[in-house]
């Protein structure tokens, strides 16, 4: 894993909020063009780690490199357009689906062409008729799909997915997995995927990071989740499977 070129590299990164340490001495990298899953118990700091990756937060100490360049050397807007996050909550603005999927373009003073909007919706498994629907009438799963589609508008080079299939049924979940794998293959997009579903991590991930209590406990090929050597990881895996 170390020999691969890193899309994102952490060097002794720590982060705290109001004196509470949330991430402790994170070191490791997410290989370019690969799918890495990020697993760990609730509250481990996974979502927080994502917010550091696109500069929504800055670490207290340590260094983050994106494509080998220090994160602070990027203009924040540019950085956030090529490091895209589909947020865990699938936050939406009030209004229509069309408005929400268009946000990334509107922010650049442009319009999202209707054709492109329809195409993106279809790709995540929502049909075109959704375009004029009001956000408040969408189910949790439909919001997640829309959130993924919206994150794709900026065509990010690095795609951070925060539990994007947690509210989806089995079939939709598989469709989204296939879509992400396809994006990864077609555009060599680097994917980092937070999931509570270890089977999903095994199925789609090339690599995995296991996080607990703000620390990275283990990193390596996904298969490490099948027979963990680290005791804490073993306990975690056993707990998740039960």
């Amino acid at each position: 894993m170390l020999s691969l070129e890193a899309a994102i590299q952490f060097k002794n990164v720590s982060y705290s909020v109001n004196g509470d340490t949330i991430l402790t001495d994170i070191t490791g990298s997410f290989p370019k063009g690969k799918i890495t899953t990020l697993v760990g118990p609730s509250g481990a700091g996974k979502s927080t780690l994502f917010k550091l990756c696109n500069g929504l937060k800055s670490p207290d100490s340590g260094e983050i490199l994106i494509n080998g360049k220090k994160i602070d050397d990027y203009d924040p807007v540019t950085l956030r357009r090529f490091v895209g996050i589909a947020l865990q909550q699938a936050t939406m603005l009030s209004g229509t689906v069309k408005k929400n999927i268009s946000i990334p373009m509107i922010l650049q003073g442009k319009q999202l062409p209707e054709e492109r909007a329809k195409e993106l919706l279809t790709v995540v498994g929502l049909d075109e008729s959704f375009l004029s629907r009001n956000i408040k009438d969408l189910s949790g799963g439909q919001r997640q799909k829309l959130s993924i589609a919206r994150t794709l508008v900026n065509k990010p080079e690095i795609l951070l997915l925060d539990e994007i299939t947690s509210s989806l049924d089995r079939v939709s979940q598989q469709d989204i997995e296939e879509l992400i794998v396809k994006i990864n293959k077609e555009f060599s997009t680097t994917i980092i995927w937070i999931t509570h579903n270890l089977q999903q991590a095994l199925d789609i991930g090339d690599y995995t990071w296991v996080m607990m209590e703000g620390e990275v406990v283990e990193t390596g090929e996904s298969s490490l989740l099948e027979a963990p050597t680290n005791e804490r990881v073993r306990n975690f895996v056993r707990g998740e499977v039960e």
Binding site: T78, R80, M92, I103, L107
Partner: peptide, 20 residues
């Protein structure tokens, strides 16, 4: 706050993020 964060995440400026 979540909406402010969303706009920033999608590459918006602070001014765009607080507009509404």
């Amino acid at each position: 706050q979540d909406q402010t964060e969303l706009i920033l995440t999608l590459g918006g400026t602070p001014k765009q993020a607080i507009r509404t």
